[in-house]
Design a protein around this nucleic acid. Structure first.
Length: 813
RNA sequence: GCCGCGGUGGCGGAACUGGUAUACGCGCGGGACUCAAAAUCCCGUGCCUGCAAGGGCUUGAGGGUUCGAUUCCCUCCCGCGGCACCA
């Protein structure tokens, strides 16, 4: 059997590399590069083939970089806090710390079996007190700098997970993790003031080398919109005095509405408040109160999902009060409707049926006037009775602003509003502050103590970490065990010393992962989060590889952390990840997403057992472009193993031989592999390795130099086999002690190339010629070719296009 | 609806800056070795036509620019991912 024994050689070299600390980074500035993969959540399912894909890609990059003399930081750790381990504890009673320890061991074993050259000396786990002490320290830093605060707000509550969630963790109105429909609750919670950075986070996106998809998702999520807050004022009846002797007064009120289309201000026919708007109670007249209360109760019962998905159906109630138009003084009726969201803008909008689709639908239902104030440009027809005209145009029916374009009018009306003191230009964001507290156990405790007398008191940094108590009860009540742990929450106030209660909420696990890349630079430091010198040395991250599912979660939060730490003087950069790439999903052999229930999950352990680590590495890199989704194909693996066996067998025929053609091919291979690895085009790199291997294999005697160069090029991809062959060839040192081959353009030059000969752009022949042959000679040779003569004979040559070394095109009439 | 990405053989996929479309791998067909099979090795393999040389067609559809278009432009169709009552 002409095959190598992967079961023997792979563990052998893995052990050797471990002993030699082959992947460890050196603390030196020279040629320092930081390669980061998104650290895994150590799930019970073990390592997924998707992990293998991105880790292998980065391993190839890192191994090559080291061979080029670079000092590479390629660390690994575990995003180890989180809900699944806690839910498992509720179900089985096994402590999350034990579950997590076990799953981390499994991940570690599996990653080592893939032959990944991580710097294992820097391994971290977010659930380690030595780690989360700094997560807590960061919380305190933010707290002291007004970036962490507690507030009562309408928040997302998941009944399945029994905790609040950040906006980013609500997908289609449901919990991202357990799919339970999220309900709104008014609760006091901890927030990070990410909105303070909205503008800079938006601007910073332009500067980073990230996939356009992710960048546009972040821009969209931050959602900046520039507009005007316009005040609609009015008078309402107010009762004062003792019961029985009340008197009615006229009191002034003001409703600010936010609009991006202030050019349509003269088209307002009504105002709509969100049902939850605080002014609703105040402004509703007695005769309308019953209807308003009924509507509001009904709206409250609707989930966010229902309110946002029944887009076409608009409903509302008139509340009985009118406000004055700020420029015309006209009376404008005030309505409530659940198509207006309380937590965006001012929670109130102006209804302009002629120029807004939603307002148009609403106006039709409730017989509000459609006032055309923006006319379509000349030559364009629009039927205002049929639908709203939402594009820009020329102003009409707008007093002194008539004749202006929408753009001019936006500016002019905004100025008029401002100088009349009836509003101001404002910027609104979709981005909300980040809700970070969770009513769960398995996370980093929020380092705050509640004192009757002093209120919320931060824990002293010297008292960190606030340890998660191990000895707690996991009850299926849904309540965090921390709430009932007396030893945990009975403390004294850090300020006055009186009896106090520890905050029992923990932090969102996304807080843990927002700064882990900093810790890798100095993972064992007990005095500081990381030495500034080391952060400066390695950060920001040069290349970051991971899944696209974190587009607005981890990647946005981490950017916020970096900006905040920059402003507080802890880091000298703003953007943490200069270049980002996403690996595509690996689908099951059936083309579906791998899942337990479909039974199409491929276990890397089994592939490694049967074919070897080098085979799974090569196979996953060869499947297709890194960023594409691609189905697993078991028969494709066989082809990779055949290729590796071929390389192995070729070694037996190595000897002394001169072979100019092979030299040329090897040079081209050096060029192609080097370029392709940098461009993350591993599939085409491997294709070139195959072409080269096939050529080597064909030779009776394989020139030693060519073969050794080939093995060096193969090494980052198939490190075990390359190392085995390298030693088998008589070398004492590691294959990775080699420097990366240098490309020599002179040697790569072909003696002969196939020139395409076209007549009128159609291929009629190919001729073998020296690539340097001048046009005249190529032309003569081409015209003398039999099949070309056939198409040119008796015709006039109008033109000849010549591309040196590639083609000649004869244009005839 | 809006934003982003894509559509190439039987399959996964290649193709520099507009320059020989289908590299590489799988699969399939044929052959060698073998008592036989597996493994391995060699040859072939886009479609139509032809004994062959060759010819015609072909990168989702249609049009355009060009000596030449998978690549650039216009119109349209389909698929995937994201966002979506944000005023």
């Amino acid at each position: 059997m002409p095959s190598y024994n992967h079961l023997e050689i792979e563990p052998k070299w893995q052990k050797e590399w471990e002993t030699n600390k082959a992947g460890e980074a050196v603390e030196s500035d020279a040629d320092a590069v930081y390669h980061l993969i998104m650290f895994p959540y150590p799930s019970g399912a073990g390592l997924h083939v998707g992990h293998v894909e991105s880790y292998t890609a980065m391993d190839i990059l890192s191994r090559k970089a080291r061979m080029q003399g670079k000092n590479v930081l390629f660390p690994i750790g575990y995003d180890a806090f989180g809900l699944p381990a806690e839910n498992y504890a509720v179900k089985t009673g096994v402590h999350p710390a034990d579950t997590t320890k076990k799953t981390m061991e499994t991940f570690r074993r599996q990653m080592k079996a893939v032959g990944l050259s991580f710097d294992w000396s820097r391994e971290i786990a977010t659930c380690d007190p030595a780690y989360y002490r700094w997560t807590q320290w960061l919380f305190l830093l933010f707290y002291k700098n007004d970036l962490a605060y507690r507030a009562k707000a309408p928040v997302n509550w998941c009944d399945g997970c029994n905790t609040v969630l950040a906006n980013e963790q609500v997908v289609d109105g449901a919990c991202e993790r357990c799919k339970t429909t999220v309900v709104q609750k008014d609760l006091e919670q901890w927030f990070f003031r990410i909105t303070k950075y909205a503008d800079r986070l938006l601007a910073g996106i332009d500067a980073v080398d990230w996939p356009e998809r992710i960048k546009s998702m972040q821009r969209h999520w931050i959602g900046r919109s520039d507009g005007v807050e316009v005040e609609f004022r009015g008078l309402r009846a107010e009762m004062t005095g003792e019961k029985g002797t009340e008197r009615v007064h006229e009191a002034e009120f003001s409703i600010p509405v936010f609009t991006t289309r202030v050019d349509t201000l003269f088209g307002v026919s009504y105002i709509v408040l969100a049902p939850e708007h605080p002014l609703v109670d105040v402004l509703t007249t007695e005769e309308n109160r019953d209807a308003v209360v009924a509507y509001r109760d009904q709206a409250r019962k609707k989930s966010e999902l229902e309110r946002t998905q029944l887009e076409k159906d608009k409903s509302g109630v008139f509340i009985g009060t009118y406000a004055k138009h700020p420029l015309t003084g006209e009376d404008i009726p005030i309505w409530i409707s659940d198509y207006v969201l309380v937590n965006y803008g001012t929670g109130a909008v102006m209804g302009v049926p002629a120029h807004d689709e939603r307002d148009f639908i609403f106006a039709q239902k409730y017989a509000q006037g459609v006032n055309e104030v923006v006319a379509p440009p000349a030559g364009m027809e629009h039927d205002f009775a049929a639908e709203a005209y939402t594009d820009d145009g020329i102003l009409v029916n707008s007093g002194e602003f008539d004749g202006m374009t929408s753009t001019e009018a936006k500016n002019a009306i905004a100025t008029a509003i401002e100088s009349a003191g009836k509003g101001k230009r404002v910027v609104n964001y979709h981005l909300r502050d980040w809700l970070v507290s969770r009513q769960r156990y398995w996370g980093a405790p929020i380092p705050i103590v509640w004192c009757e007398a002093c209120g919320a008191q931060p824990v002293e940094p010297k008292d960190l970490p606030v340890l998660l108590p191990r000895d707690v009860d996991f009850m299926p009540t849904g309540r965090s065990p921390l709430v009932d742990s007396v030893s945990f929450h009975d403390v004294s106030c850090p300020k006055c010393g009186a009896g106090a209660r520890r905050e029992s909420d923990t932090m969102d696990t996304f807080v843990d992962s927002s700064w882990y890349y900093l810790r890798y630079t100095d993972p064992h430091n007990d005095d500081v989060l990381a030495e500034p010198e080391r952060i400066r040395r390695w950060c920001p991250v040069d290349l970051y590889l991971g899944g696209a599912e974190h587009a607005v979660l981890h990647l946005l939060y981490s950017r916020f952390f970096a900006y905040a730490l920059h402003d507080l003087g802890y880091v000298d950069f703003e953007e943490p990840f200069l270049k980002l790439r996403n690996q595509g999903l690996i689908l099951g052999p059936d083309g579906e997403k791998m899942s337990k229930s479909l039974g199409n999950v491929v276990n890397p352990d089994e592939v490694i057992e049967q074919y070897g680590a080098d085979t799974i590495r090569l196979y996953e890199m060869f499947m297709g472009p890194l960023e594409d989704a691609k189905p697993w194909d078991t028969s494709g693996i066989v082809g990779i193993r055949r290729f590796l066996d071929k390389v192995w067998m070729t070694r037996e025929r190595v000897g002394d031989a001169k072979d100019a053609e092979l030299t040329c091919l090897v040079q081209k291979t050096i060029k192609k592999i080097s370029d392709d690895i940098e461009a993350l085009k591993f599939n085409t790199a491997i294709s070139q390795l195959m072409i080269c291997a096939n050529a080597l294999h064909e030779r009776e005697v394989v020139p030693r130099g060519a073969y050794e160069t080939f093995v060096t090029l193969l090494a980052p991809f198939a490190p075990h086999l390359a190392e085995e062959i390298w030693h088998d060839l008589g070398h004492a040192e590691s294959a990775f002690a080699q420097s990366w081959p240098e490309y020599d353009a002179e040697l790569a030059k072909d003696a002969l190339v196939a020139i395409a000969v076209q007549v009128n752009g159609r291929l009629r022949a190919t001729i073998e010629l020296s690539p340097d042959l001048p046009e005249k000679d190529v032309r003569d040779r081409a015209l003398a070719t039999e099949n070309v003569e056939k198409f040119t004979d008796g015709k006039e040559i109008a033109k000849v296009i010549f591309i040196q070394g590639r083609l000649i095109n004869i244009v005839v009439k």
